[in-house]
């Protein structure tokens, strides 16, 4: 690789570039925190102050105490865990089948599964509403979990398939010879071997379900069920009352913390597990 084993001079450039991009990626987030610490009267100054003077916690107090964003975070947690609990167990056997079996229309099927990504999310809102309504799943977490699952399945299947691909078929055949059934061989031999892929798939599933906005907005009808992203937009005002940007950014900042921490903790496994077997040697 270009910088893989670069000389000292080039290493300096690498660090310089990394710092530059760190600023590019971090600054808007920092700015979000800064705005969340500013009262309205400080927002419309030019040039804007980088450090709020004085910083106020008013916005955080408002979104937590007055609006109770805590319970929305809790709802998001349930939705995310629910999606995780359905999406991962459903995608593992599917990926296994796509990787270890040969059958007709296999490539068509794989393409088709990835192809569900081609559907514009907005377009499916109305039909999804109808489906949930006919299953009596409107205004329920279960209905949402199915939709989230459908949206996370393609990527998860693809990640797991990459893992199964790297596991030699001999191992799997040996198990069959030993008298394992297909399911047993999957359960006892394959699944433990794809555990690292689990980290990557889970992370993407969590991220996607945590920030989903339009679907819960459309499908939920009770205040106490709203997940966190929908609750944030309560503060988007009409022209009449104005938008409470401080409260939006304060809640958004709090809401992104759990995901960020998860990533920091698990990033090693995550990177390792993302695309095993995707590189053709």
């Amino acid at each position: 690789m270009i910088f893989y084993s670069a000389e000292r001079f080039y290493r300096k450039i690498v660090y310089l570039l990394l710092f530059f991009f760190t600023i590019f990626f971090l600054f808007p987030i920092l700015w979000m925190f800064i705005i969340s610490l500013k009262p309205v009267s400080q927002l419309y100054r030019f040039p804007p102050h980088i450090i709020p003077r004085p910083p106020v916690l008013k916005n955080y107090v408002y979104s937590f105490i007055n609006i109770g964003i805590g319970r929305n975070l809790f709802n998001s947690l349930i939705l995310t865990l629910g999606t995780l609990a359905v999406s991962i167990p459903v995608s593992i056997p599917a990926a296994y089948a796509l990787s270890k079996f040969r059958f007709r229309f296999q490539s068509v099927l794989l393409l088709g599964i990835l192809g569900t990504q081609m559907i514009p999310g907005m377009a499916s809102l109305v039909p999804l509403f109808d489906i949930l309504k006919s299953f009596k799943l409107l205004d329920s977490f279960i209905g949402l979990i199915f939709i989230y699952t459908a949206r996370t399945l393609p990527l998860n299947i693809w990640i797991f398939k990459g893992f199964f691909d790297t596991i030699p078929n001999d191992l799997f055949e040996a198990a069959l010879v030993d008298g394992c059934t297909q399911f047993q061989s999957m359960r006892y031999i394959m699944v433990p071997l794809v555990l690292p892929g689990m980290a990557a798939a889970s992370m993407f599933t969590i991220m996607q379900s945590w920030i989903e906005f339009i679907v819960p907005l459309t499908m939920l009808f009770s205040e106490e069920k709203l997940p966190f992203p929908v609750a944030v937009y309560k503060f988007m005002g009409s022209p009449i009352m104005g938008t409470n940007y401080g409260a939006i950014f304060a809640s958004a900042a709090v809401g992104s913390l759990p995901i960020l921490m998860l990533f920091i903790i698990f990033q090693r496994y995550f990177i390792k597990g993302l695309t095993a077997g995707a590189v053709k040697e």
């Binding site: 509403f129 907005l217 009808f221 205040e223 937009y233 988007m236 938008t243």
Partner: peptide, 18 residues
């Protein structure tokens, strides 16, 4: 159910139609 203004129109229309 409390929503922001930009979501209000879509929400009441889908709710009523559904």
């Amino acid at each position: 159910l409390v929503l922001g203004y930009p979501q209000l129109r879509q929400k009441i229309a889908t709710a009523a139609a559904g």
